[in-house]
Computed example of a mutant assay.
Amino acid sequence: MLIELVRVAKFANRPWLADVRTSFGHGAARWCGDHSAEPGEYRVEWTIDENIVWGWNAKPATRTGPGLRTGGHCLVLRGQLILTEDGAAALDWDGTTILLDLSAPLPEGVTGTWVELFIEREKIALYPYVL
């Protein structure tokens, strides 16, 4: 996914965080690239290092369309939930697929619905890459 890196910063006893903007929102997440990265456009892979628990950190969205916003120390990602035939789950986030680890099976009928994930910003990692 193409993002705009605003800045990379480190706070005491915390990982490096990147303040980023997308076409549908902005927020901060753990930066797994060069700590001296300059502001600008980067292609990044997003990963979530937290188990998804329906009703706790995953809920039906009240709106449709991709979204990214800050909610306290969390990032809120809005996308469509994908379930594969073999039981794997992912978030379709404006054409970017983010694999999800589930703590328990998801309720029936949620495949393809718009959901919001509430994830601590330090448990979302951004890995820059070059095409």
Rank of each mutant, 00 (worst) to 15 (best):
K59Y: 10
E41P: 04
G40W: 12
A61S: 14
R69H: 01
I82H: 10
Q80F: 05
L68K: 01
L81Y: 04
Y42G: 10
R63G: 06
T84G: 05
E50M: 11
D86Q: 15
Q80E: 14
L83N: 03
E45S: 14
A58F: 02
T84D: 11
N51G: 08
W54Y: 15
V76T: 03
E85C: 06
L75N: 03
E41R: 08
T64Y: 02
K59L: 12
V53K: 07
D49K: 13
C74G: 04
A88Q: 15
G40Y: 13
G40D: 14
I82Q: 09
A90M: 04
G40P: 13
R43F: 12
G87K: 11
P60R: 13
T64L: 02
G71S: 11
C74L: 13
T62M: 08
Q80T: 13
W56S: 10
L68N: 01
I48Q: 08
P60K: 14
I52H: 01
A58M: 15
G79L: 00
R78T: 10
Q80P: 05
I82K: 14
Y42C: 06
E45D: 12
I48P: 04
N57V: 07
I52R: 00
V76Q: 04
D49W: 08
V53C: 06
A61H: 01
L77N: 00
R43C: 11
H73Y: 10
A58C: 14
K59F: 09
K59T: 10
T84Y: 05
W54E: 10
L83V: 04
V44C: 03
A88P: 04
P39T: 06
E85M: 14
G72D: 08
R43V: 08
